[in-house]
Each structure stands twice: as C-alpha cells, then as structure tokens.
C-alpha cells in the first residue's frame, strides 16, 4: 500500500534549510497499523508533513508511493488527499467564518468529484454526517459552528476523526492525535480509529507516548531518531520503551 524508500527531506527555516529526514524506509501493507515513536525533534511530524505536501517541507531524495502513485510527484496537497492520504493534524487550525457543515460537505464532494462520482446533496450529506457523529459521540450542534473555532482540545481531535470517517482514506496518518486529550476523549478517539480498521486501509500512528497504543493496538512499532528509523518491532517494543526509556532501548 504505502512504500517509503530512502526518503530525505528538509525544512525551509529563517536561518536556512535544515535537513530533518535522513533516509526513511517504511512499508505499510493494507490492513496494518504502524506506530512511529521517538524523542522530540526526531522528525515524526516532519514525516507527516512531507507526505501530505505542507508548504516549506521539501523531499530532496527518495519516493513515497501509495498504491503505485508517488505522492511526492504531486504538486498540491489536495491531489495527495484525492489519492487516498489523510493527515489528522496535531494542531488543527481554527477557521472562524468557515461553517463546519459546509467545510465537511465541500471536502467530501471534492473527493467524490475526483473519483468521478456525483456530489452529495445537502440532505444526504447531513444524514451521513449525523450517523458518523453519533459514532463519535459528537453533538449535531458541531455542524453549525465554525471549523475548530473555540473548540476544546478534545473537540478538535474528535473533529479530525470525524473528517477521517467521512473521507474514508486508504492511508491515514495520525500526528500526535493523543496530545491534549484526557482519558475519556482518548478512548472516544481510539474507538473511532478502531472502528475504521479494515483490510483495505492502513494507518500510521505518530505518538510520543505509549498510552495511545493501549487503545489502538499497533501491528508494528518503529523508533525514529535523528531522521531515521533506528529500531522496529511489534507492539512489545512500545511497552519496552515505556519501561526503559528511549536511550536504553536505542542503545541495545
């Protein structure tokens, strides 16, 4: 499904370009959940940004192919989204004046148009959105609010998962989705992700802490340090990290 080969990337900064990724190799098969853990500054979020095409992040070498299409060849972030990639943001931006229902429907219809399908009308969209919101224990009133505007940390993350549920991506990258969540919100978000696990969908779960992985069981765990994957293993690797810390596990 997703195959990342020798991915190198730099970030444009005021002080000049800074290389963050130093040759990442990672293959995610359909149906798998891969967790990427690592200390601060390891390049975890940069990986998410480079894949999704955030301005200022530039891949300097390597490929990242999703079902045979190289994401890095695509000019605009919306093309990458249409090819089946979804990024759940660590810090979703607030968009005062952009109505949530209109935003969700526009995004969904942009995907449908790209697939050559007919657009959903207002009534059908609302029916679909309400059903997905009920799964995430979200009030209908969300639809009338402005996107993320004045949302609590937990509401923002649930809104991200709602977008994922509506857009039904092939591959979802969750960037520190657990940050800023209390335990109840964490469970709701994790349940939302688990409900979407299926044979033809892959996940990359980026997290700093093992806690999220108690609720979203990964098939593989990778440790990222200095822009490279330095160790890979099964779910037990995350537990070992929690018990022993990054320094000890990476030295072993």
């Amino acid at each position: 499904m997703l195959k990342i080969e020798n991915l190198q990337a730099k970030v444009a900064e005021d002080a000049g370009d800074k290389t963050i990724l130093n040759g990442i190799n990672l293959t995610v098969q359909a149906g798998e959940v891969h967790a990427i853990m690592g200390p601060n500054g390891a390049g975890k979020s940069t990986l998410a940004h480079v894949l999704s095409g955030k301005p200022g992040y530039e891949a300097t070498n390597g490929t990242a192919t999703l079902d045979g299409q190289n994401l890095l060849d695509m000019e605009e972030p919306d093309e990458r989204a249409h090819s089946g990639l979804f990024l759940a943001f660590q810090y979703p931006v607030e968009l005062p004046g952009v109505n949530a229902a209109q935003f969700l429907r526009t995004a969904l219809n942009a995907h449908r148009t790209a697939r050559g399908e007919e657009e959903l009308n207002g009534a059908d969209f609302l029916r679909l959105a309400r059903a997905k919101m009920a799964d995430l224990k979200m009030d209908d009133a969300f639809l009338k609010r402005a996107v993320n505007s004045g949302f609590s940390g937990g509401e923002k993350k649930r809104f991200e998962i709602l977008q994922m549920a509506l857009l039904e991506p092939k591959l979802a990258v969750l960037d520190e989705t657990d940050s800023g969540l209390d335990i109840d919100a964490l469970k709701i978000v994790a349940n939302g992700v688990n409900a979407m696990r299926q044979d033809d969908r892959g996940f990359i779960v980026i997290t700093h802490y093992q806690r999220l992985l108690d609720y979203i069981q990964p098939d593989y765990v990778h440790i990222l340090a200095n822009g490279k994957i330095v160790k890979s293993g099964g779910a037990e690797l995350a537990k070992q990290l929690e018990a022993e810390g990054y320094d000890k596990v990476m030295a072993a």
Binding site: S52, E76, P77, D78, L87, L95, A107, A110, H111, A114
Partner: peptide
C-alpha cells in the same frame, strides 16, 4: 498559508 494547507489537505482544490 496554514489555513490554506488545512483545506487542501482535506482535498479542497486551491
């Protein structure tokens, strides 16, 4: 630019 990226990341053309 961050607002624009958020919308585009959801598949909405520029």
């Amino acid at each position: 630019e961050a607002h624009l990226f958020y919308l585009q990341a959801r598949g909405i053309p520029k």
